[in-house]
Design a protein around this nucleic acid. Structure first.
Lengths: 249, 249
DNA sequence: CCAAAAGTGTTGAAGTTACACCCATGC
DNA sequence: GCATGGGTGTAACTTCAACACTTTTGG
């Protein structure tokens, strides 16, 4: 992916600014992150999806574009978590080689603006992309090494998500339209990385008055079928408008 | 301030990345922000202090440098609040002219990484600086226009400070060593922009066990002299280590 | 003695935690 | 009939919000 040289300066890639996305997905068991395998050989650390920005786009647009280019994901919940970019962040030899292969100015000082996004795992259909040999879901618990400073970015994203979910019901972006309270419960436990009492959790969520029970139950499960719920967006938006800030977890 | 051309690429100014600082100060009445008057003529909006980064420094260092260059402030509490940079953010004519005068590449696409910082107002001694004709404290309530997208940055900073102060006692950075509970009370009210019950506030703060009363009182005040307190850093650090996250305001 | 801010307790309501058993289904 | 997860209520405790009067000083 070399620099696109087009007449208008605004459509050039900016060699000094990139975006990276921490894309979270929930498989009803645990939290996962979508990572890129850049590797020709084994043992090359995985990377967060990301790329340089175009001068014509703003940062949020750049992040959306990366999401779409990588995974065909559109209209995805995105939240900026901050800028990173120690001048010395490119110390790993594998990272240096990768830059030489991929960038017009491989030694340019790059600062990256990181985002986290929440997607329904069922929405992600793997596909070849310009900058991804391969993308796959990896359990956050199993990640101990990443390219560049991506591990630091991931940790910041996790922390940011923890804080955010205490104040806004953004977790619904990780679930399908219809879900059970147990699934929601496991989702909160996965994000907050701590157990939550089942009864207290259910009471608290229902008190918020942002989910509605459907006239429908699970089928084909070898136990008592559970009630299905959906998220009530209207009530949530009303609540945010009049101001609330405590989900109390 | 033109680009410094020195042999080593790392000490160059990076034309595409700047930092801007929202420097908060508290005058025992209300919250203020340190703003730069760039103007030769009247009517030019004030700006946040900021500048391009050097390729050799990381973002936090760049922000610290700006603080020091502008106001001689060292070892100041700094917190990143995010990256900004719509490609269209430079629409005001006064901003365009200022860039032409000040920047080697005035039309470069710039993204800026914003910080907020908390300083004791008494620490700031106005001084001429390379990029400031003049700097002065302005009450946040009175600010309705700023250069570039600085008003948006200020609003984000205010929000960020509000959130942060609910979880960490960073407000102490705005006060002198010795302070009264009433001063702390007004500080919290100024930041949160809402009244707090006096008795409840005092009880809550004291329960946190991070302030110590000194054996000293106010003198020369035309009313009952108030007890002086100091912040107990050790206890706070112990608390943060074992994990707490709710200051409950 | 007056003005000004400091300092102090109680009560009722709301919210939080901890905890154990029965239920509906598929196999 | 058994294994599996679904679903429910209460009691003790803590936290929160609301509220008014007395104290100490300088002038």
């Amino acid at each position: 992916m070399k620099k696109k040289v087009i007449k208008n300066k605004l459509v050039e890639l900016n060699p000094n600014v990139s975006v990276d996305c921490v894309i979270f997905g929930f498989d009803f068991e645990k939290l996962n992150v979508l990572l890129i395998d850049r590797g020709t050989t084994l043992g090359i650390p995985l990377a967060l999806p990301g790329n340089l920005i175009y001068n014509s786009e703003n940062l949020d647009e750049a992040a959306s574009r990366v999401l779409e280019e990588l995974a065909g994901l559109k209209n995805i919940y995105l939240e900026q978590i901050g800028a990173f970019g120690d001048p010395l962040r490119i110390t790993k030899i594998t990272d240096q080689e990768w830059l030489k292969a991929m960038r017009a100015e491989p030694s340019a000082r790059v600062i990256t603006v990181a985002y986290f996004s929440l997607v329904k795992m069922s929405d992600y259909v793997p596909q070849a992309s310009s900058f991804a040999k391969n993308a796959s879901w990896v359990s956050v618990q199993e990640i101990s090494e990443l390219a560049f400073d991506h591990l630091e970015i991931l940790n910041t994203a996790k922390e940011s998500l923890k804080q955010k979910i205490r104040r806004q019901p953004i977790g619904f972006n990780l679930l399908p339209e219809k879900f059970t309270l147990s699934q929601l419960h496991r989702l909160y436990e996965s994000i907050l990385e701590k157990p939550l009492d089942k009864r207290n959790f259910r009471r608290k969520i229902q008190k918020l008055d942002i989910i509605e029970s459907l006239k429908e139950k699970q089928k084909g499960v070898p136990h008592k079928p559970s009630q299905l719920f959906k998220f009530n967006k209207e009530k949530y938006e009303l609540l945010t408008k009049i101001g609330f800030d405590n989900f109390g977890f």
